[in-house]
Amino acid sequence: MGTANIVEVKNLNSAYGQSKVIFDVSLQIKPKERLSIVGRNGAGKTTLLKSIASLLNPTSGSVVYDGIELVGKPSYDVARMGLKYIDQDKHVFLDLTVRENLELSSYATGDYDWDKVFKHFPKLKILIDRKGAFLSGGERQMLMIGRAILGDPKVLLIDEPTEGLAPSIVDDLVTTFHELSKDCAIMTVGQNLSFVSRIAERIYAMKEGKLVAEITDEAKIKDNSYSCYL
């Protein structure tokens, strides 16, 4: 037996009303690993992440995190337990300053140690009194990740982290994700294969709501050869 998985998803199905989107997905997340799910637009990546984080109610299946069944739990409990979802829309609360964003996260988690946020994102310290509406896309992504790491989560589910960001900022994110994964597992989803190749230790390919392949071979990850599954 290897290390216990921090997340164990079994036969997960999700739908919006009558239209089924996720079909029988099973996957595992290991502690402190960097995992990516790649798939085209509409493959169901966002739906899958939100279902795992309890922001959507799956129609069937199970999500066990740290030994606890998450299906049916309110999403705020899931977040407080240390499994956090970061949206793909790069939308921080427009009317709130960086400080207020962090305060909310501290209030939710009881963790007021902002130094760890500034360690990863020193720029946020300079922007502390700026409102969300006046942050750049990259700064918003920093804030979304920064406020999520309060409370020392064990799993971050990050939806399309590089979408709409400049190449230099993507480079920074690669470094950041390697740093962050010393403390927690990171699962990203997206279509930016060069980014995925630089961060992922393991990849799932997703197509039309199903996982169609798992790539663990380092060489295959590095040379993007999994792109054939898209």
Partner: peptide, 20 residues
């Protein structure tokens, strides 16, 4: 502050771990 954030986007307030 949480209410103002919720007026903007209630789901994200929940995702932070706040009982909306």
């Amino acid at each position: 502050t949480a209410i103002r954030a919720g007026i903007d986007d209630a789901e994200k307030v929940e995702a932070l771990g706040i009982n909306i």
